[in-house]
Computed example of a mutant assay.
Amino acid sequence: MTGRRLEGKVAIVTGAASGIGRATAHLFAAEGARVVVSDVSDAVHDTARAIGDAAHAIVGDAGRADDVAALVQAAEERFGGLDIMFANAGVSGGLAGLFDQSAEDFAEILRINLIGPFLAIQHAAPAIAKRGGGSILCTASVAGLRSGAGGVAYSASKAGVINLVQTAAQQLVGSKVRVNAICPGLIQTGMTEMIYDWATAAGKADRIGRLNPLRRGGEPDELAQAALFLASDASSYVNGHALVVDGGLASSHPFTQQNYGQVAI
């Protein structure tokens, strides 16, 4: 008995060339899963090489139906089935305001961030159900909970992901396929690199993440641990849920702490 939490499981992780996706693919494999990793970037092959024989890399677009179907097919043909789908791929789309973003840009962000998870659920759920059930998880964001954490299109897309997993969980009733979302806060990944670089250049690196009670940004490995929980049997009664992993940011609207008579600690 190894005690590995995903022993014998087969998983797909999109957006696995870097950041949360790469960290999660490594953790899933370390916990016993065989993993199909995918990304639009060729760097996804580096992820697979670092994992070894338990990984298979495919370059593809998570927002295109044929590419998503190919991932499920690869999991079944190479590893014998599918138990876990992590629809993690996404783009930030920048911080353009309501009147500064074109309809074309808005649609492209929705295609990747929202239609991508929809396709992941649509194609993965039947394959997972054939194995007797399993887990689908999608990366949303605290930006999908309320305004103030991202651009208008990004925020709308992530709000859609949260509702999507709730709706899908209901539509998959009786299948033993669970569908949940993860809502990261500020995490140090390629998507947030410009924020970290700007703060460092301005001599304000120590202020990154100061709006949350932990007063720091998060790391991809911390999100990977949350993904592992939702992917594993440890979360067997968690379904249709959006798990917030943000250091406490979403527990309150931002405020100036000295106005609250904060006790010095």
Rank of each mutant, 00 (worst) to 15 (best):
M1P: 12
G3A: 10
G3E: 15
R4V: 10
A16I: 06
I20V: 10
A23W: 04
A23L: 02
S41R: 14
D46S: 03
A50K: 03
A54R: 07
A57N: 08
V72A: 09
G80K: 09
V91Q: 08
G93W: 13
G94T: 07
G94D: 05
A103M: 14
A107I: 04
L110G: 03
L110N: 01
N113P: 08
G116W: 00
F118A: 10
I121T: 13
A124E: 04
A124Q: 05
L145W: 03
K158D: 01
G160S: 08
I162W: 11
Q166I: 07
A168L: 04
R178E: 06
N180S: 10
I182D: 06
I182K: 03
C183D: 00
P184I: 06
L186V: 06
L186R: 00
I187S: 03
T200V: 07
R207Q: 11
G209M: 00
R210C: 07
N212Y: 00
L214P: 01
R216E: 05
E219Q: 15
D233L: 00
H241N: 10
V245W: 12
L249W: 11
L249E: 15
S252L: 14
N259F: 15
N259E: 15
Y260W: 15
G261E: 15
G261V: 13
V263Y: 13
A264Q: 13
